[in-house]
Design a protein around this nucleic acid. Structure first.
Lengths: 237, 237
DNA sequence: ATCTTTGATATGTCATACATAATACTAATA
DNA sequence: TATTAGTATTATGTATGACATATCAAAGAT
């Protein structure tokens, strides 16, 4: 037998634990039985018998599903299937103090990408009320000084509202999760200091574009509005 | 005592389970002790004693951390802290068959947002080799017919390469995770059928823009390239 | 008929024992 | 001496049984 044979054999050895397999089995089971949101799944002991493992393993597997937001467990009632919260879990590990620097910077970039990319969604879904609300937010902002020192609260309020307008909950949750990281990176020494070269497209300008312009203009406006951040990214390396 | 008193009492009752608390305690513990990637954490029994709970509870809590990608457990060695894989967990629940329709559509949108938003990253980081590779991919594609029936494989190859050029691993992983969902939504009856109105900006056009144009042109080009998808989204509701 | 109590039930927690795999240590062999 | 084979140790993985607790439902009291 050749060495490569052994290697391929080695590679194919199942390194997953029992719980891993049970987890898969459970997901498969749910799909098989076409169980949807709201349906209760068999109780732990039954599952243990069905799959031929101990309740401990079942419980660990169920814990994972619960963690994924796939099920919710209630005493006496059992576990019911719920619509998975994609970001519920993720947000727990989205801790700036734990993430490494590279990832942090990448998340910073990700936010910029999103803000520019949502232009079309915005224009298609924005309402008169949204425009009014944005105007109100802008009106409440302190006057922009020459040095463009922005208040993080107003910054968040404005951009959060934009995500809201997209009417895309997934996107909204995603942004909410990214926020603390963005804030952290912004204030940490991870990126080059702000250059403050010139005055950029303001929030007010963006609202104007959203009201009277088109997606293309908005993308360019947003790109310019974020120039400060982009400059910090690109200057770093 | 008034009713509202009772109500507020009720509300403030901690509904979280022991495991929930232990989980928080553990994360706090790690941060407190300033444990970084690679450090081993105390063994399960020690943690059980330290926090005054059974090993079962500790294990469930550790399972969660492991699931978050915060730690890795090895027999005999114990558990060591790892750099959390933000999307490792998420990708498990990113199962088209499990997600509800609204979320699926939102993810579909998310992909479009990303592709348009990455223009600046692309232009800042693209190399001559990348351009060549893209040209090669395009050259291998079958001729685009009038009806714009695209082959999903070539589609994926091209767009994946774009994400690669951004040199943003987080973004890349994110895209990889979104792919199956996008594919699923594309083929499912969730969205309106393709309208096939006209010929759009092709992959080749995009490469040209990336080579000779600027971010703004690329964003517009990509927007046009994706017009088909956007039309399906916006026509739905 | 309504409220209270009680009991049944399924998950939550605990304790213990054993299995398994990876490492460290020891001893045998060249 | 160095290398290998075997053995012991150790921490996680799995199994089992017991009890705690919360919730629902039915029986019972008002």
């Amino acid at each position: 037998m050749s060495l490569t044979f052994f290697k391929s054999e080695m590679m194919s050895i199942d390194t997953s634990s029992l719980v891993d397999k049970v987890e898969e089995s459970l997901v498969a089971l749910l799909r098989e039985r076409k169980l949807g949101v709201g349906d209760v799944i068999p109780k732990e002991i039954e599952l243990a018998e069905l799959l031929g493992v101990s309740r401990t393993v079942i419980r660990e597997a169920l814990t994972r599903l619960r963690l994924m937001g796939l099920i919710e467990s209630k005493k006496r009632k059992g576990s019911v299937i719920t619509s998975p919260d994609l970001f519920g879990m993720m947000s727990k590990s989205m801790n700036p103090h734990i993430l490494d620097q590279d990832t942090l910077k990448e998340i910073f970039e990700l936010r910029l990408v999103l803000e520019i990319g949502i232009a079309d969604l915005l224009f298609h879904r924005v309402t008169k009320e949204d425009i009014d609300e944005l105007k109100q937010i802008v009106a409440d902002e302190p006057p922009v000084t020459q040095y463009h020192i922005f208040n993080i609260d107003y910054e968040v309020a404005f951009h959060s509202k934009l995500y809201e307008i997209t009417n895309n909950q997934t996107l909204k949750k995603f942004q909410k999760m990214l926020l603390p990281v963005f804030d952290y990176v912004h204030h940490s020494g991870l990126l080059k200091k702000q250059s403050l070269l010139r005055t950029f497209v303001s929030h007010k300008d963006l609202v104007d574009i959203l009201e009277n312009g088109n997606p293309e203009k908005f993308r360019n406006g947003m790109r310019d509005h974020l120039e400060n951040h982009f400059a910090r990214i690109f200057d770093f390396s």
